[in-house]
Nucleic acid binder design. Structure first.
Length: 271
DNA sequence: AATCGTTCCTGATAGC
DNA sequence: TGCTATCAGGAACGAT
């Protein structure tokens, strides 16, 4: 599932591939996934040029030269693919944005949880973006991190995945970071000691950077903008490894449900 | 205000 | 073998 490293990898790809291209047309077979509506989006963006690609949390934004912004949320299974016009249709392809010079930006989504949304101005977008917590790789400091933990009594894994608290961390990176920091995912955030908080702060940075280095985790559906898999899934220490041996203590990785999400940890390493 | 349950959707998997 | 039922899961939303 696309989290910060996956969305950032796509952002970098799109920056190289489609910045400077003009939007010629938009088509879809799932109009409900285009907000506020296909017609309004067409009217606002067809004819404009893509100036820049930004990312904030898991939200990807095409910044257009007319001041409008198109944002995408990939949710569980969304893909943004750059293809040449006429190339074979992609699996679960639902939105096609035709660009100048024979390219297409395709939004494909097996689960159909993802969406595309028009923002009429940078100010409108900014309002939404301020609702996200700090970016863990650029804005978050240890001091700020400790304040977040102290202010929240819910399980640490729930807090890590809460986009209003910290932006961009999803299930995979939350599980992996907690393993590296040797913290039980159920520990109430406000009960985490100073030393453990510092270890977790570093572990978050480490797993996110590792995810970026491997161009994301293609656990199930994730592909980069050219349709290539990432490789971080080959280095998972706990995620999806229930019943397997812990690489650190030779105990067995356990799976539990936390906040309705699959949670993976080593009971003997993570106290 | 904080937190919980429900909803969206479809492929994978379990059970018979 | 082939059918049906269940489940997973990010985040918005309504309910408590």
């Amino acid at each position: 599932m696309p989290e910060l490293p996956e969305v950032e990898t796509i952002r970098q790809d799109l920056s190289c591939l489609i910045v400077g291209r003009k939007v010629l047309a938009i088509a879809t077979d799932t109009p409900g996934k285009i907000l506020p509506s296909l017609e309004l989006v067409k009217k606002a963006v067809v004819g404009s040029t893509i100036k820049r690609i930004d990312r904030r949390a898991k939200l990807l934004q095409l910044i257009l030269d007319n001041g409008k912004v198109i944002a995408f949320h990939l949710k569980m299974s969304g893909r943004l693919l750059v293809r040449k016009v006429g190339e074979e249709k992609d699996d679960w392809q639902h939105i096609v944005i035709t660009l100048s010079e024979g390219l297409e930006l395709r939004f494909a989504d097996m689960r159909k949880f993802g969406w595309m949304k028009l923002f009429l101005s940078r100010e409108d977008l900014k309002k939404v973006l301020t609702e996200y917590g700090p970016e863990p790789l650029s804005d978050l400091t240890l001091k700020k991190f400790r304040e977040i933990l102290e202010a929240n009594g819910r399980a640490i894994k729930i807090v890590l995945m809460d986009q209003e608290k910290i932006a961009g961390i999803g299930n995979i990176y939350a599980n992996e970071a907690l393993f590296l920091a040797k913290i039980d995912p159920r520990t109430p955030a406000d009960k985490i000691k100073e030393k453990q908080a510092a270890a977790l702060f570093l572990a978050i940075e480490k797993v996110l950077r590792l995810g970026l280095r491997y161009r994301g985790a293609s656990d199930r559906y994730y592909l980069d903008a050219l349709g290539q898999k990432g490789h971080f899934q080959e280095h998972f220490l706990v995620y999806g490894r229930q019943g397997k041996e812990c690489g650190s203590c030779k105990g067995m990785i356990k799976r539990i449900a936390l906040g309705g999400r699959g949670t993976f940890y080593c009971p003997s390493c993570q106290k």
